[in-house]
Amino acid sequence: MQLQYFLILAAALFSIGIYGLVTSRNVVRVLMSIELLLNAVNLNFLAFFRISRSTRY
């Protein structure tokens, strides 16, 4: 599995979250957009964990 697929998916999720964060006019929806952003960042972290070959984490 390539790294780039996961990174591009995380970038798309991040952009959708930014769009929701800017355009929404409801506080709960802003919270949901922030959850989208955080999950995109977590996906990036785990994609880089998957390809790192170091044994000391």
């Binding site: 390539q2 790294l3 998957r50 070959r53």
Partner: peptide
């Protein structure tokens, strides 16, 4: 993402 070369990392070694 597409223009960066990830060759130094792209090993896919599972723990």
């Amino acid at each position: 993402i597409l223009q960066t070369s990830w060759l130094g990392l792209n090993s896919g070694a599972a723990p």
